[in-house]
Amino acid sequence: MTLIITLATPMLIVQAGDRLLTQNVNGRTQQFDEKSNKSLIYEAFNGLLAISYRGKAFIQGKPTDEWIAEQLNSHLKIPSDGTDLWSLQMATGRPCNLLTCDRVIKVLRESLSSLAKSEFIQTGLTVVITGWKEKKKRIENVLIEITSESPLVS
Score class of each variant (00 low, 15 high):
R54S: 02
Q89V: 12
A57P: 04
K62T: 04
L76K: 06
F120Q: 01
Q30K: 09
K56A: 11
K56T: 13
I51A: 08
A44Q: 03
E110L: 07
A50I: 14
R19L: 06
T2Q: 04
P95W: 04
D102S: 13
K117H: 14
L88F: 03
V14I: 09
D18K: 07
W86Q: 06
N73A: 14
E149P: 07
L49M: 07
P95N: 06
G27V: 10
N97R: 08
D18N: 15
K136W: 12
E70L: 14
P10A: 12
R138M: 06
D18F: 05
I4P: 02
T126A: 06
W132M: 04
F32R: 02
Q60S: 12
E66V: 00
A57L: 03
A50L: 14
V14K: 15
S80Q: 15
I121M: 13
K133H: 07
E145F: 03
I129K: 00
Q89A: 07
Q122V: 10
G124R: 09
I129D: 00
S111N: 03
E66H: 09
L152N: 12
T64K: 00
L20G: 06
T22W: 01
S87Q: 02
I78F: 13
R54V: 01
Q71A: 09
I59A: 07
E140P: 15
T92Y: 08
D81N: 15
H75Y: 08
S118M: 04
F58D: 04
S154W: 11
Q60L: 06
S39I: 14
K56D: 03
S118R: 15
K135I: 11
E140D: 05
M1N: 06
F32W: 12
S36R: 00
L72D: 05
N73V: 15
L7H: 09
T9W: 15
L98V: 01
Q31H: 11
L115G: 12
S39C: 08
L76Y: 03
A69W: 03
S113P: 00
H75K: 14
M1D: 05
I59H: 02
T147G: 05
N26S: 13
A8K: 15
E119V: 13
S111I: 09
V25M: 10
M1T: 14
S148N: 12
L12R: 15
H75S: 12
E145W: 04
A116F: 04
Y53F: 13
W67F: 09
N141S: 10
S150N: 05
I41L: 05
S154Q: 11
S111W: 03
A91C: 07
V107I: 10
